[in-house]
Amino acid sequence: MDGIFLQQLINGLTLGSVYGLIAIGYTMVYGIIGMINFAHGEVYMISAYLSAIALALLAFFGLESFPLLILGTLLFTVCVTGVYGWVIERIAYKPLRNSTRLAPLISAIGMSLILQNYVQISQGARQQGIPTLLDGSFRFAIGDGFVQLTYTKVFILVAAFAGMAALTYIIQRTRLGRMCRATQQDRKMASILGINTDRVISYVFVIGAAMAALAGVLITMNYGTFDFYAGFIIGIKAFTAAVLGGIGSLPGAMLGGIILGVAEAQFSGMVNTDYKDVFSFSLLVLILIFRPQGLLGRPQVAKV
């Protein structure tokens, strides 16, 4: 393996792990109420602003050490973004719970317009950013080339996988996770068995928002810049990742994200950046033609 290939692999992995984190929000909401939450990309965008605000406030009060700074920022961002997730669900989706399948979809599109413009009006249209927190990088010589890996990227990979592991634990091992899975399998039956499904759905939105918030902090750290429009493209990509892995499946979302990220990086490295997105969408179409339920999705059993 030469240096360039390895570097592209690392590029793809970092990008993909971030896609995966956001894809979790799509896939969980879809799994539980069968709705595509188009405002989810905007939730990530809000969390990017929140992380910059938290960082600015913490630094203003004189917090200097990196671990404390990042911990404080994460805590603040995850909590406030979680509240955003809850409020959005309460306002725009809950009144539509018993209605047609497409009504919440349109309401979500409206919500994403609202969030974008709300942030634009309150924060201004400027590009925003944070200063570099972690300077420096590892450099490995491989053959005649080299691979350069910034500390930030290492941090992102570690944090993203830690976040996914924590979520897997919550869903597989805790009471809350059991309720979520029960509601996903059969909402009516779950409510008969005494689960407050409305509340579980709210929790799912909060968890999705929290994962998006984690992604928001990590992306902001890595790229250092964002604007009120940043949620759109990454939202579409994450949604693609979720479908690729099989929508409704948690490991699928992570796998889909990583496959998409690596595929994009390798394609633009070896062929052409112009047609990178054409390639990733074609890949999606191809996979879906041969495996209509996505990579790790359960095949839909039609009930008569």
């Binding site: 360039i4 570097q7 592209q8 590029n11 793809g12 990008l15 429009y229 493209i233 633009s268």
Partner: peptide
């Protein structure tokens, strides 16, 4: 609108 150009940079 994208922010990740790492692949291009490589």
């Amino acid at each position: 609108g994208e922010k990740d150009f790492n692949a291009l940079v490589t």
